[in-house]
Amino acid sequence: MTAVLERPPVKAAPRSRRGGSPFEAARRRMIGPFLLPALLVYALVMIVPSVITVWISFNEWAGVGAMEWAGLANYREMVADPVFGTSFANTMKILVLVGAAVFVIAFTLTMLLQDMVGRKFVRAVIFFPSLVPGLVIAILWGFLLDPDGLANSVLKSLGIAEPPLWLAPENMFTTVMAGMTWLAAGTYTVIFMAAADRIPRYFYEAAELDGAGPLTRFWHITLPLMWDVIGVCAVLWAIGALKTFEFVLVFAGATGSLPPTGLWTFSVYAYAGAFPSDGVPRYGIASAAAVLTMLLTVVLTILVRRVMGRREQATY
């Protein structure tokens, strides 16, 4: 398999000429009934509303009542808004820095733990965080990283006199990123480890006979054979990172109040427009931010595919 999106279709029954055999013709007639129901539901519930969202982004709208045509005003305001700049920068930091950290951790663990004792257990457990609601994690973090919290008590007992103030404004975003890394690293490690497990043992045995060390084996066997998985995960990560929202909100805000602007991401920006804690909702600008998210999704998906695609030949 090459990367999932826009993959050249599998050459089914290569010996048959295009549409020639009755078999091919029958298959062709199957496309409609198989594809259309899904396409229809998807288009009606997701695409049509998204198109309406694009329309809303050119208007001033409180979410109810009449819309007022605003042209590009929402987009202009967004670009001129320094908070939008911060949100954009934060989103990109999450995308790149957290992404890099997550993938490095997941790789390291995959590479070095292939024969670890208890790896099944570890693998099952590190998936847990994605099952625990963000709120629980936020409350736990509060207790853990408080200036007098467990983390700092441990550090102090290790002789560090002035442990960091994890939740101080200047450190907060880094702490948020660390938390996101923790949350995602487990999930991706699980996926990577499972993918590595599917690589036939004899590849490794052959390499070992050739005297390859673990690093060489990883570089020349595991990595190339996992490339597809990595590509899919990179796309998923990119899309997930663009939509980063709930974690920041529950982590840094109290109920009903938005987190400090220094921590905002794209999606928090859009959310703050549509659901301000106190004011009139501004669906126009919220929609504009959402449209930008969608555009970036497309761009990033294609970009990731391009970058990953270069290695495709190495697959088999």
Binding site: V4, L5, E6, R7, L35, A38, L39, Y42, M46, I47, P49, S50, I52, T53, V235, L236, I239, L242, K243, F245, S267, A270, Y271, A274, F275, A286, S287, A290, V291, T293, M294, L296, T297, V298, T301
Partner: peptide, 16 residues
């Protein structure tokens, strides 16, 4: 069409 479906991954729920 595959790309068209994948696009849906990027649509934020509040927007629609």
């Amino acid at each position: 069409v595959t790309i068209f479906f994948a696009l849906g991954l990027g649509i934020p729920a509040p927007a629609i």
